[in-house]
Amino acid sequence: MNAKTIDRIATFCFYSIAVLIVGILLGLVSFILIRGLGVIDWSFVTEAPGSVLTGGGGVGPQLFNSFYLLILTMLITIPLGLGGGIYMAEYAKPGKLTDFIRLSIEVLSSLPSIVVGLFGLLVFVQYTGWGYSMLAGALALTVFNLPLMVRIVEQSLTAVPREQREASFALGVTHWQTILKILIPAALPGIITGTILASGRVFGEAAALLFTAGMTSPPLDFTNWDFTSPTSPLNPFRPASTLAVHIWKVNAEGIIPDAKEVASGASALLVIAILIFNLVARWLGRFIHARLTSS
């Protein structure tokens, strides 16, 4: 066989791989959406799950919990991530400490989420005495989301052209003011896009939540806005199962009669939410960039 023929065969193989991968994704997404969209209706999105014996009902509380937990996590992660990212981009000098922080970022972001969940169980659930709670879940999610956030902020800041920094210094503006008033605004599109993509990951996480936020959701009263009440949806100290945890639970337990339907519907909701996160992240990044650079 001559080199030309081998080259043609190889090219064919590469195309097959590409087509296979695109096919897998299309298959996955269309399967999820086709199976799930038949289940999703208004009551599925809003109502609480039915009893274990009869099945039925929806995933309303789980959907709410997913979003609420995401907000709680981001409230903790964003300030810490901004701080850490600013430090790494602006202050960190080459040396032991910086290497150490980098190692921590690397290790924390590649730890298995179940291990992070167990750490959360030990520290945020048992040690603090909160029991299974949203706050414990949010803190556990922070553990692996924070290194991601730090990296996003650091990369966005270092991507700001050196000239912007120099211009500000040359006006006698101090380093800290330059960071706050010049660098952060210039890095904002990157930070926002990265944050929304990270949110998608938090939104779909389940393993780290099983033993921190718990697998059950107490009966919620959506008219109760008292943070301290156990039936208030806003109480951060109540246990909460999210959409992703719910999918796992109904499948693993296999008790409720309509487990497959609930899981399909919930999976479709999850995938749609993450699609939206992706699209919004791209669109918002582009939009802000356009706002900043054109008239």
Partner: peptide, 18 residues
Amino acid sequence: IEMLVGIPSVVYGFIGLT
């Protein structure tokens, strides 16, 4: 690829299961 990364692991599990 970005979509494949974004799909939560429970969804992969569920597809595996069904």
